[in-house]
């Protein structure tokens, strides 16, 4: 599995890369997001590259997603905002650590690229993908969802606003329809 396996980045020329990752990047910059922990996903690759190229932001690769929840709690205690980038399968790894969002009442925002829906080839992605939203909601996280490229900006804007201005822990699900189902064979 590699970042370039994403259907959209394989089949589109560079100038035709989707613009919604750039929309997300602009919003994160405007909200002064400084720490960006992630477990990589093809759907986040464009955004991760932008963060890696921005000295004012710290890209922090994780070994497992719950590390990112704890990291963002520490970042907030130290006066910085962050955002956790992960895939839907990673949400399950986070469950106990998500209690920090209620205990510390800190501005938690995560952007979750969805697998296990919309033409999924790999059945192993389906169980966690099917329960991602419910798991987040049971853990006290508000869930917003973007299905189309043209709604990503306003959804991430709203999510960032409620997370950073109101300390309302929030997840944005970036749907597999938006990202494109991963192509395993032609």
């Amino acid at each position: 599995m590699h970042a370039g396996a994403d259907a959209s980045s394989e089949t589109m020329p560079a100038e035709a890369l989707p613009t919604w990752p750039e929309d997300i990047f602009s919003i994160l910059r405007r909200f002064d997001v400084r720490q960006v922990p992630y477990v990589p996903d093809a759907g986040h690759s464009q955004l991760i590259d932008r963060v890696l190229g921005t000295p004012a932001m710290r890209a922090i690769p994780l070994t497992t997603e719950e590390e990112g929840v704890a990291l963002l709690a520490g970042a907030w205690a130290g006066g910085q905002r962050g955002v956790l980038l992960m895939q839907s399968s990673g949400v399950g790894n986070c469950i106990n650590m998500l209690s920090l969002t209620q205990i510390f009442r800190f501005p938690f925002l995560t952007l979750v690229t969805m697998r296990g829906e919309w033409g999924e080839f790999n059945p192993w992605q389906v169980p966690m993908g099917s329960s991602t939203q419910a798991v987040l909601e049971l853990s006290g996280i508000k869930v917003l969802r973007a299905d189309r490229p043209d709604e990503v900006r306003e959804v991430v804007e709203a999510a960032s606003g409620q997370a950073y201005n109101a300390c309302t822990p929030t997840a944005v699900l970036l749907s597999q329809r938006l990202i494109g189902a991963k192509v395993f064979s032609k």
């Binding site: 990291l71 963002l72 709690a73 520490g74 907030w76 205690a77």
Partner: peptide, 21 residues
């Protein structure tokens, strides 16, 4: 910063703080 839960998270909370300060 006292932890009464979040087992396994102490070092990462420290890292977030250390990078911020």
């Amino acid at each position: 910063l006292y932890l009464w839960g979040a087992m396994g998270g102490a070092v990462m909370i420290g890292l977030g703080l250390a990078l911020a300060q």
